[in-house]
């Protein structure tokens, strides 16, 4: 296995951390996420490159440190430090029943669209986000397509009136 699970002492000894294919991965939880990210930003991770989510409905077993309880959803945040030339990944577990997370907008305003995309395709709500609406799918669409229990197959044309008509 490429992932050697170990406990990281750097981040106050509280944030479990792993290595995955040469990149550091932190596993904060929902409560301390904002604080962790604020600290990281001060350490030089000034760019939030990407926010995405994974639905682990069909694959509950995965490489997580022992102290992290796997949940159905996982938010993956990719940060980049220009000065260190280093990437860092944060994986946050989100339970199925309460799919919410505090927004990163006040730290990285660039997360706005990325969070909206996750909201649209996974149905995870970001609390405090200025504009938590669908971004890719039509506004009155039902369901969240990238969830694993959403069928991929074709569906009939959901013909709604054109905007502005």
């Amino acid at each position: 296995m490429p992932d050697d699970t170990k406990t990281n002492e750097d981040n106050d000894g509280t944030i479990p951390s792993t290595m995955s294919h040469g990149q550091n991965v932190l596993h904060p939880n929902r409560e301390n996420l904002l604080e962790v990210i604020k600290n990281l930003r001060e350490e030089g991770f000034v760019v939030c490159i990407d926010i995405t989510a994974v639905d682990y409905l069909e694959n509950p077993k995965r490489d997580l440190p022992a102290s992290v309880k796997p949940e159905r959803f996982e938010i993956v945040i990719n940060l980049l430090s220009h000065t260190k030339r280093e990437r860092l990944r944060l994986r946050v577990q989100i339970p199925e029943l309460e799919p919410t997370l505090p927004t990163l907008f006040d730290i990285y305003p660039g997360s706005e669209a990325l969070e909206r995309e996750v909201h649209d395709l996974f149905g995870i709500t970001f609390e405090g986000h200025p504009d938590m609406t669908r971004i890719l799918m039509p506004e009155n669409w039902e369901g969240h397509p990238l969830r694993k229990d959403y069928d991929i197959g074709k569906i009939p044309v959901q013909f709604k009136e054109a905007p502005g008509s």
């Binding site: 995955s20 490159i49 490489d63 990719n78 990437r87």
Partner: peptide, 16 residues
Amino acid sequence: AGEVYVAVESPRGELG
């Protein structure tokens, strides 16, 4: 099994 993030410099920026 595993997870990975790879980025390249596309003409428009970082394509990951």
